[in-house]
Amino acid sequence: MSGIKVLLFGAAADRAGTRETVISAETTTLDELWPILAERHPGLSPMRDTLAFAVNGEYARGDASVSPGDEVAVLPPVSGG
């Protein structure tokens, strides 16, 4: 199935109850993708302001374009070290 692959990490995976999901959408932006993701996984909603996003492995802002075949990552505050 072609779609936008969404990977979730750390606390976001915990809240969503999954580490990966696919969203069927035409070309859109991260900001427009978020409500679809949050509706599917309501546990994510309270985290919204803490999250960063990556598109195809690089940090991206809310107005970044995403298309079917792209990989979006939902990144909670990093805590390496």
Partner: peptide, 17 residues
């Protein structure tokens, strides 16, 4: 993009979240 969780004797917590 690396995350850690503390696994306690009574549960776990994602550090930073």
């Amino acid at each position: 993009p690396i995350w850690k969780r503390e696994v306690w004797s009574d549960g776990y917590v994602w550090v930073g979240s």
